[in-house]
Design a protein around this nucleic acid. Structure first.
Lengths: 251, 251
DNA sequence: AAGCTACATGCAAGAACGTGCAGAAACAAG
DNA sequence: CTTGTTTCTGCACGTTCTTGCATGTAGCTT
């Protein structure tokens, strides 16, 4: 078995079972625990898993179910959301992604804002119903349970009719080399489709996303107009990003 | 079981049940109380739970309270919803309308139901995200603020692709001569469009709707398979309806 | 006040860990 | 084909971490 192949297997196993026990996998594959540990260490360094005593878990907050995620670092998300809301001045047509950070953005919008918000997240849409001046447009389709957004062919098709000024995109990982990543292939495709429909795409990257990577690439770092985060500007990953010429907006 | 995973479980349990009894959890997981206590101590140190004698509580007791409060519905709507939920047995493809009664139906569905629910209401869609076995399909379009559902040409077009067993329709008025009515023309058209896509249409008619009429006609009484209500069978309007041969399901 | 339960701490056994090292395998150069 | 280099893998060793138990203390209940 090739090493790369083995790491691939580990990632898939991590996704399907939600955890990896080093001892069990070693036994199952007939190789030493040391190799497994080395692999896990590498994957963790690349931000693709979280190393814990005894094995590994998925990159912490990204895989956990929606409800627990809602409570993860609310402050960080709120700061990012507040900054992001400034990218939607009156009169804007904005596409809002799904996910907890995007939801926080919706809630951060001024109650009297007059704008058009397009979203494929029912949750975001219902959060905006109170905003009398906001025209809401929902992209329909089959709801992908993991992050509660419409994905798939119908949704991509519906998105094709949209033209927006800005797309505020959520991801689960922002990594200097891996770029922007998320946990599902369909979701990644949907984000790309939405990105094409907006003049500018900004990434919502609360603290726990920085320096991590997930399974599926969404876009390269160069493909977005900017990354909104609240980590300190001297964070090593952030330094790498600015060194690459990426526009980083700090909350 | 990995230690990190165990702490995760404790947090989730804390959220869902509102408390943790160290002894019980230890027994349930088959590990010593000491480990549980150690975990709780750590979580408390990280500010993720509140340590109390015998176990732990969520940091803010508001979380558990809020959830129960949100689920409290006026009795009438709840009774209608419970009866309506029985029209969605496992395997059904059902269209769920928007509005508070339809939302109550969504919440009344068994958590383990396996079915396909189509809706043009983001609120209903997000209420169903927790139901792992339910495939959700959202009809997109411009959101009509009054009742927070997708209406208009795009929504009607999207609805055309749907074929369902049953449509649970909300209205604002059920009247023996005026028929089924609602407060907005676009909404009425949307309801008609959805009704055409289902084999049977049932009306959700909580007590305050019976005997009233609104501005725009949706359908005639004869066009629906039945009306679900919780008013007493000897209510005068209900008597008129049954006299007309309308199928009335009493909750 | 008495009895019981939960608690924190210390301790020891075992598990998992990282590191250094050596052999094996893959690869490139001669 | 041979030789040297690099990479990968498994083993050994000392270290660190976790866990259950024992002990003495603190807190709740009656």
């Amino acid at each position: 078995m090739l090493a790369a192949q083995r790491q691939e297997l580990l990632l898939r196993r991590l996704e399907s079972e939600g955890r990896i026990v080093a001892k069990d996998i070693a036994l199952e594959l007939g190789i030493s625990e040391d190799s497994i540990r080395r692999d896990l260490r590498e994957l963790a360094a690349a931000g693709l898993c979280q190393r814990v005593y005894g094995g590994a878990l998925p990159v912490s907050p990204a895989i956990a179910d929606l409800q627990t995620r809602t409570n993860v670092q609310p402050d960080s998300k709120l700061r990012v959301a507040t900054r992001a809301a400034r990218l939607i001045p009156p009169g804007t047509t904005a596409i809002l992604d799904g996910g907890t950070t995007a939801l926080a953005v919706a809630r951060s919008l001024p109650p009297d804002l007059r704008a058009t918000i397009v979203t494929h997240s029912p949750t975001v849409a219902s959060a905006l119903v109170d905003h009398a001046g906001v025209e809401i447009h929902v992209i329909g389709g089959r709801i992908f349970k993991h992050s509660a957004v419409a994905c798939g062919a119908a949704a991509v098709e519906a998105a094709a009719g949209i033209n927006a000024d800005v797309f505020l995109m959520g991801v689960t990982g922002v990594h200097p080399t891996a770029g922007l990543t998320t946990g599902d292939a369909d979701e990644a495709a949907m984000k790309r489709a939405l990105s094409r429909r907006a003049a500018d795409t900004y990434v919502l990257a609360s603290a726990e996303k920085i320096g991590t990577a997930s399974r599926f690439a969404v876009l390269g770092l160069a493909d977005v107009a900017g990354i909104i985060t609240d980590v300190a500007p001297d964070h090593p990953t952030l330094r790498d990003l600015t060194a690459l010429g990426i526009n980083v907006l700090t909350a």
